[in-house]
Amino acid sequence: MPETGVVDRLRAAGCVFAEEEAEMLLAAASGPDELDLMVERRAAGLPLEHVVGWAAFGGLRIEVDGGVFVPRRRTEFLVGRAVELAGPGAVCVDLCCGSGAAGAVLLDRVRGAEVHAADIEPAAVRCARRNVEPRGGRVHEGDLFAPLPAELRGRVEILVANVPYVPTDEIGLLPAEARDHEPLVTLDGGRDGLDVLRRVAAGAPEWLAPGGHLLVETGERQAEGAVEALAEVSGGQLAPEVITSEDGWATVVVATRRQGDGRAG
């Protein structure tokens, strides 16, 4: 099947970047039959990353299985800030790790980093192990902090938590690629989109080292609520601030564990 035919089929299916996607599919397919199947799957609405089996993220090629949350390019902003804050040998945790993209980048870019990643979804854990463990990290299966080794308490310098933050009532407004092909648990943040963030904020002070940083992505209109939740739920032990990317496509809250007894004021 000629490339023009691939582009035409993708364009007819509504793929905005049909030419770029055609190049990726052509490169990934082992032959005409596989290419035809891959184009068919993409035209049916599967995320491109699920079709080809990988996503570009932070300069790395991250394996992404079907049914696993696809790492978003905007999240590179969060991970880039985490890398900047991490010193050599930093103890890092990637919660709600999905494919393990954040953990993989931390291992790749922070010299001597000790990285642990965790997710509640078994499919995500299997995928993350292929991305994180060959680079020297460890992946754990369970809910938020529960599966982490106890010896990490009070030692974590960088805690990345790309929690779900879409309000429940807005799930239906998401693109079909996400709504139909990614686990609901990776998208649904509860009534106001901050339910999982509150749970992370409640547990983070116990795991962070004094001066350690929690980094979470959120929606622009949720940022104020996220700051309030992080400060309140942590009992004032976390000092949050909002940072945004220059193009405005990413909003991140960085919450630092206070020194001393951790209490505000």
Rank of each mutant, 00 (worst) to 15 (best):
V79N: 01
V242W: 06
F69P: 08
S30E: 15
L214C: 11
D143T: 11
A176H: 09
Y165Q: 01
L60C: 12
L60N: 09
E63L: 14
P32H: 11
G137V: 06
A13L: 06
I171F: 01
R263W: 12
E217N: 09
L194V: 04
V227D: 08
E141V: 01
I243K: 08
P88E: 15
V253T: 02
V125L: 06
V163K: 00
E151V: 11
I243T: 14
A104V: 04
D33G: 03
L184A: 12
R73C: 06
E63Y: 07
D195Y: 05
G262S: 09
V110C: 10
L48K: 05
C15L: 14
L85G: 02
G89Q: 11
A176V: 12
V233Q: 05
V83R: 12
D65I: 04
A12Y: 05
R11K: 14
G14L: 08
A239P: 02
T251H: 09
V6K: 01
E246D: 11
R41T: 07
Y165E: 00
A117V: 09
L25I: 06
G235Q: 14
H116A: 13
F77E: 04
R263F: 12
L230M: 15
A209N: 10
A250R: 12
E241C: 11
L173P: 00
Q259I: 10
I171M: 10
A90W: 10
E224K: 10
P88I: 02
V93W: 02
V125G: 04
R153S: 04
V91D: 03
V139L: 02
G5K: 01
A28L: 07
E40F: 08
G203H: 02
Q259W: 13
C127G: 01
V254W: 04
A90V: 09
D143R: 14
W249H: 14
L148F: 01
R130T: 08
P240A: 13
E63I: 10
G137M: 05
P210E: 14
P205C: 11
E220V: 10
V252F: 06
G248W: 12
R61L: 13
L106P: 06
D169S: 15
L148W: 00
G189W: 01
V139C: 02
W54V: 15
P149Q: 07
A55Y: 06
G190Q: 02
L85A: 12
A113M: 08
V200H: 00
G67H: 13
G235H: 15
P149N: 07
R138Q: 11
A28H: 02
G98S: 10
E157C: 00
L60Q: 12
G58R: 10
R221G: 11
V39P: 00
R73P: 11
G154T: 01
V52H: 09
P175D: 09
A202H: 03
G87I: 09
T168P: 02
V166R: 00
V139T: 03
A178Q: 06
D108W: 10
C97V: 08
V70P: 08
V166C: 02
A104M: 04
E157R: 12
C96A: 13
V79F: 05
L208G: 01
